[in-house]
Simulated scan of single mutants.
Amino acid sequence: MSNSEKATFGAGCFWGAEASFRALEGVVDTRVGLASPTDDRLLQIEVVQIEFDPKTLAYTQLIEHFWGLHNPTSVDRQGSDIGAKYRSAIFFHNTEQQELAQAAKRSLDESGQLNKPVVTGVLPLGHFASASEEHQRYLEKHGKSSCSI
């Protein structure tokens, strides 16, 4: 799709995040993989990269959906997945996404909805490496709807 845009989110296990985002109207495609703000592979985070139609689905709607997928106050952990690669992150693709993500994070933090500060990183997308084909649409391929325990 020529007028589509990309968004990249780290919300813990990428399988569940991918399945949830795929269900949104306006999502054209998804890829799971590892992303980092630089070429340093030691800083990689599990992410889902979303191709979406901005005429149908706004970037801010993707961010709101992202908040509901995980605990944005948890440092390097989502459920039973522990480690830096499971940290909460929004990787921006341009200045507009950066500004919208920072504003959304600030708004959530100031809302009083959470009992701890939001630790989600708002980071430039420096590197994205797609996971192997066996990881793409993993839950769908295995007849599962979530990767919770």
Score class of each variant (00 low, 15 high):
D76W: 01
Q44R: 13
Q136P: 13
G112Q: 02
D76S: 06
I45L: 09
P117T: 10
F128N: 07
S36G: 13
Q44I: 01
G26I: 07
K144F: 11
S88H: 08
S107K: 05
E96T: 15
S107Q: 08
E51V: 14
T60H: 01
L100P: 00
L125P: 04
S107G: 04
Q98D: 01
F91G: 02
V119C: 12
A104Y: 00
T73C: 14
Q78D: 06
D40S: 07
P72K: 14
K85H: 13
A103D: 03
D29S: 15
R106S: 15
R31A: 15
S20N: 11
G79D: 07
L100N: 00
S4M: 05
H93G: 05
A84H: 10
E96R: 15
Q136F: 14
G68N: 12
S80V: 04
T8Y: 10
N71E: 11
F14E: 12
L139W: 06
L139G: 09
E46W: 13
A7S: 12
S130T: 15
V118I: 11
Q98M: 02
L125F: 09
A17M: 11
I149A: 06
A58K: 13
V48P: 06
P72F: 12
G12R: 07
R22M: 12
V28K: 13
H127M: 15
E46D: 09
D40E: 10
V47S: 02
T38M: 09
K141G: 06
L57A: 04
Q98F: 01
Q98L: 00
A104P: 03
Y138Q: 03
P124Q: 05
N3C: 00
Q113P: 01
D53P: 00
Y59E: 02
V119N: 10
G12I: 10
L43A: 14
S80Q: 06
I90W: 02
E64W: 00
S146C: 11
P124D: 08
L57E: 02
L123M: 13
L125T: 02
F52A: 06
E5T: 03
A23E: 14
K6S: 10
D76R: 03
A11V: 12
T60G: 00
S74Q: 14
H142C: 09
T38D: 09
I63D: 00
R31S: 13
V122P: 00
K55I: 01
D40G: 04
L42A: 15
L62K: 02
R137G: 08
S130K: 15
T38I: 10
A89Q: 08
T60A: 09
E99C: 02
K85Y: 04
N3V: 05
I149S: 11
L43E: 15
A11N: 07
G33H: 08
S145P: 00
A58L: 12
A129F: 04
I90T: 06
E25Q: 09
R87D: 02
N3K: 09
G126P: 04
G16D: 12
C13Q: 07
L123F: 03
R106L: 12
K85W: 08
F14K: 05
A7V: 06
C147L: 08
Q44F: 10
V27A: 04
I149G: 08
V75K: 07
A129M: 04
V27E: 03
L125C: 04
R41K: 13
T120H: 03
F21Q: 04
D109Q: 04
T120C: 07
N94S: 10
A58C: 05
S132K: 15
